[in-house]
């Protein structure tokens, strides 16, 4: 126990030295916060990063800690409190943008140091196979005629699915405030409502509906990505159908505010090394995540753009006043 004690002390000392001088763009110890309970999506990303970073020998020791609550905004507040600490990352994603607004959170993502976007998943709009709706245009017509009659099944209120439904209504010129969106807990329940023919259309990540789509029980009206999906080449994008809308459910990592340029660079370098590692690529494949690495200034402006877009639509739908 004593040796382990000494070893820990030594590592900590080295880490401190590294931090205080910040001379090399190298991170020896890293804490990754998953702002959700163990077992969820963000937790999965954090633990996969841990696996890749230590597996590829990029960082010696990686710790994952979970801070639960309020759509991740409690974790966010904690991260923002850790000003200037260059050994911390927090996993976040598109959903957090909406949660911040919905929860009237006193802190927001623009207070963090953006590091990189890691993965993204396209959303799909589907209908049961028996549905008379064949294309996104058909759905748009029906929605314009009477928004109340189009019931949407998807995930939590203010989440990615809900926002896509609202943006869709906006893009086709229907009243976004009048959409009849029904949040279900978990993908399973929404899927059951679709299969039972209880709702008009369903929105979710492609992966969640994949089995049913391949089995011919659900028909894809559109995918929300800019390009068609590799594993579903028959499903048209929204843009192809003349609806100017693109949306990805992305996940990213951010760092505490108040970092020096060197500290930021060290973190970006570390994440970039991880993204390029064999270990990370294997995890992406196994988990069915799409690589959408985007770092630095580009990610920064992407993030700003998303925040603006989400905030606008949430006000219009009446989720936020």
């Amino acid at each position: 126990m004593l040796t382990s004690f000494l070893k820990r002390g030594a590592i900590t000392a080295v880490a401190f030295a590294a931090l205080s001088t910040a001379a090399f763009a190298q991170v020896n110890e890293l804490k990754i916060m998953a702002p959700a309970a163990p077992g969820g999506g963000w937790d999965g990303t954090a633990r996969s990063m841990q696996q890749a970073l230590t597996g590829a020998g990029i960082v010696k020791s990686v710790q994952v800690n979970n801070v639960t609550g309020a759509g991740g905004t409690i974790g966010l507040a904690q991260l923002i409190g850790a000003k200037g600490q260059g050994d911390q990352l927090m996993v976040n994603g598109f959903v957090m943008v909406g949660a911040i607004l919905l929860n009237k959170s006193p802190v927001n993502l623009s207070q963090t140091t953006p590091i990189a976007r890691l993965t993204a998943e396209a959303e799909v709009i589907v209908v049961p196979t028996e549905s008379p709706l064949k294309t996104a245009k058909d759905l748009a017509e029906k929605l314009k005629a009477d928004p109340a009659k189009v019931t949407w099944a998807g995930g939590s209120a203010g989440g990615t699915d809900h926002i896509l439904a609202a943006l869709f209504a906006q893009a086709v010129g229907a009243d976004a405030k009048k959409i009849n969106y029904i949040p279900f807990s978990g993908g399973g329940e929404a899927l059951a409502a679709m299969l039972g023919g209880r709702v008009t259309a369903g929105v979710s990540g492609y992966g969640e509906f994949e089995g049913q789509i391949k089995a011919g029980k659900l028909r894809v009206l559109a995918v929300s990505s800019g390009k068609r999906l590799e594993n579903a080449p028959d499903a048209p994008t929204l843009k192809e159908q003349g609806i100017d809308l693109e949306l990805l459910n992305w996940r990213s990592v951010v760092a505490p505010p108040g970092l020096s340029a060197e500290q930021t660079k060290a973190l970006i370098d570390t994440v970039e090394k991880m993204v390029k590692s064999k270990e990370w690529q294997e995890i992406l494949k196994a988990r069915g995540w799409d690589d959408s690495y985007l770092a630095g200034a580009e990610f920064d402006s992407f993030l700003k753009n998303e925040i603006e877009r989400v905030s606008k639509v949430m006000h219009e739908v009446g989720l936020v006043k």
Binding site: A70, G71, A77, L102, N103, S105, A157, P183, S185, L319
Partner: peptide, 18 residues
């Protein structure tokens, strides 16, 4: 948080209660 509208109920401004 109310599941259907995403509104906070009875949280009295304590984020942990959301």
């Amino acid at each position: 948080i109310d599941k259907l509208t995403g509104q906070a109920r009875l949280t009295f401004g304590v984020p942990e209660l959301l």
